[in-house]
Design a protein around this nucleic acid. Structure first.
Length: 267
DNA sequence: CGCAACTCCTGAGCGC
DNA sequence: TGCGCTCAGGAGTTGC
């Protein structure tokens, strides 16, 4: 899916268009996403005003009068503003009082919809780690968590420690700071921790500026593709030359996920 | 604890 | 043109 920059791009492209709007109708074409969407629960949202939209980890959060709608895009979910209503894999349409609407389309149906009461929001996100782009995501926060034998790449992708980093950005971040994805977290030294933090913030921020990355399905709510994939240094570049040392980029498996690195620049 | 293996699902890309 | 295989941005669960 969409990782942090892609979800952020969706939220930004959506917010000015639907904040202050009232939901006039919800149509569920297929309730069988990762979780089952109860149509009666969906109908509870009709009549609600959307007062705020934000991203938390890889979730899109819609704040309403009494309820909170939380959408996860899974691997292939897209949320299109006034998108084509007759596409294959359209699962949910949300219509607004001004005649506009958003369509949730998700080929693999790994995404999810959660409708909760306002007072349940904190609990919903209680197991999610810190947002990497806020100031308090710093040396002190990370130092305390980098204990044990697990490898740094699986740590970066573990959303209970850091929110929003997925398989693509984990590889890109580790290349930027010269750390091998296989390094055990307890062996990351203080200089490397600071470099890692810098790389996380830099890569995610740059990607957001480019509307994220579009590998195949992803686009923001305006239907605009991200272009950050043009700047990938290692992801999907196995066999090609490292931009820094000209040795070949390698592809390995880490916890079953494709991982890309330069064995000379990363150690 | 870490992690491998599996689950959910569809389709693109590849070799033959 | 088609078949079968592998792989894909996530994340939860199970079992070792």
């Amino acid at each position: 899916m969409p990782e942090l920059p892609e979800v952020e791009s969706v939220v930004r492209s959506l917010s000015s268009k639907i904040i202050g709007r009232r939901i006039s109708n919800i149509y569920i074409n297929n309730p069988n996403l990762r979780n089952f969407i109860d149509i009666n629960i969906g109908n509870k949202l009709v009549g609600s005003y959307i007062s705020e939209i934000y991203r938390r980890a890889k979730y899109i959060v819609f704040i309403m009068d009494d309820f909170v709608l939380i959408i996860h895009l899974g691997m292939t979910g897209i949320l299109l503003f006034n998108g084509n209503l007759s596409l294959k894999h359209n699962h949910v349409n949300i219509f607004f009082d001004d005649g506009n609407y958003i369509v949730y389309n998700d080929c693999r149906r790994f995404g999810s919809f959660h409708i909760i009461n306002k007072d349940e929001e904190e609990v919903f996100f209680s197991k999610i780690g810190m947002e990497p782009l806020i100031e308090s995501f710093n040396y002190t926060y990370l130092k305390n968590l980098l204990k044990g034998n697990r490898c740094i790449k699986s740590f970066l992708m573990d959303n209970k420690y850091i929110a929003g980093i997925g398989n693509i950005y984990a590889s890109e971040i580790l290349y930027m700071c010269g750390i091998s994805p296989l390094r055990q977290v307890k062996d990351i030294n203080d200089v490397e921790i600071n470099n890692l933090i810098y790389s996380i913030k830099n890569i995610l921020t740059e990607s957001i500026k480019n509307n994220g990355s579009s590998i195949r399905d992803y686009k923001n709510a305006d239907g605009v593709f991200g272009v950050y994939q043009k700047f990938f240094k290692v992801y999907n570049r196995q066999g090609k030359e490292c931009y820094n040392c000209q040795n070949k980029i390698e592809k390995i498996l880490v916890n079953g996920r494709s991982t890309f690195l330069c064995n000379y620049c990363q150690s």
